[in-house]
């Protein structure tokens, strides 16, 4: 939707990823597994903030009003969620590619890692879509997005980096299936909440 209309937004984020990873490369050449993992998720987080936060902030009021007259708010938020999931999955893949290119490749079980980061990307995009919808109502305030978003995604990121750890080194993690279950249920919770609550936000 938005990124197809405004090509610069998409390429802006792309450049953002590459430059961030390149800066990390200049500072610490080839980080070890643990740091690689941490850095990867931090990059991922800021990409999510930059990419998803725009999805409401950059829409102008007239167009929002047009959408409002056209479709039910529930289908609008569903469309936004699906679109942001796809966008964030693409971004995740690009981030992974960049990280592996510039920072070395410590990942041993590739497909597992791929699955985890896609799951992570989807969770982040869901969460930030909802938060962006709230922040957009509150005077399009970007600082507010950070205040609301960071405590909420903190446990999410901790969980993700813990899950991702298994793809670098063979460690014994007893609660692994439980953690996956938790991530999944959190996603479902966020989707359900945004479908129920978004119509109330939309009533302007």
């Amino acid at each position: 939707m938005l990124e197809l209309r405004q090509k610069y937004a998409f390429y802006g984020i792309l450049l953002y990823i590459i430059s961030t990873v390149f800066v990390i490369n200049l500072m610490i050449d080839k980080p070890e597994e643990k740091i690689w993992n941490a850095l990867f998720w931090v990059v991922q987080l800021f990409v999510a903030v930059n990419a998803i936060a725009k999805s409401f902030v950059q829409e102008n009021r007239g167009r929002l009003l047009y959408f409002y007259s056209l479709v039910h708010p529930r289908s609008f938020i569903a469309a936004k969620l699906i679109y942001n999931i796809i966008l964030m999955s693409v971004m995740t893949l690009i981030t992974m590619g960049c990280c592996m290119m510039f920072l070395g490749n410590p990942v041993t079980s590739f497909w597992y890692f791929l699955g985890v980061i896609l799951l992570g990307g989807i969770s982040l995009s869901l969460l930030f879509t909802m938060l962006a919808a709230i922040a957009a109502q509150a005077n399009q305030n970007a600082a507010l997005m950070a205040i609301m978003g960071f405590p909420i995604m903190l446990p999410l990121l901790m969980l993700l980096s813990n899950i991702a750890k298994s793809s670098f080194i063979t460690v014994y993690q007893p609660g692994l299936p439980k953690m996956f279950l938790m991530m999944g249920s959190m996603d479902v919770l966020i989707i359900a909440l945004s479908l129920v609550l978004f119509p109330f936000l939309w009533k302007d």
């Binding site: 909802m130 709230i134 109502q137 509150a138 609301m148 919770l189 909440l193 609550l197 109330f200 936000l201 009533k203 302007d204």
Partner: peptide, 15 residues
């Protein structure tokens, strides 16, 4: 507006 938006966020926070 404050009442409406914060109510939505409150439900989100409690969940």
């Amino acid at each position: 507006k404050r009442a409406r938006i914060s109510a939505v966020f409150n439900i989100f926070a409690f969940a």
